[in-house]
Amino acid sequence: MVKKKNNTDDSKILDEIIFNTPEVVSSLFHKKKQLILEKLIIKEMTIYDLKTELRMNPGEIRRHILDLADKGLIFQTKTVRNKMGMTLKYYRAKAKNYIVHLSWGVQT
């Protein structure tokens, strides 16, 4: 995995990450995970926020979030208690762009 430094104001996330391992492919090209990643590239969000914006089941969102974090595509930024006393974890994408460099074939 190759990381490129961020040149924008937002110091929290990188400009791009280049992957050359096949493990991330299934997560990166999963439609619902892409939807979640798109939101997390823009700003940090909680599962509750994502549920409200994407109108998806929170259990399903959590499953995708755990997978994305496990693959190193997102990270947890902070834990906050809101005005209703609910403890909420915030997540953010690690980079604005994800590039995959992979080749497959039979050597002749």
């Binding site: 909680t46 599962i47 929170p58 259990g59 834990t79 006393g85």
Partner: peptide, 10 residues
Amino acid sequence: IISSGDYYTE
């Protein structure tokens, strides 16, 4: 649900 941080239970 309220205190785990992940807004989740099963």
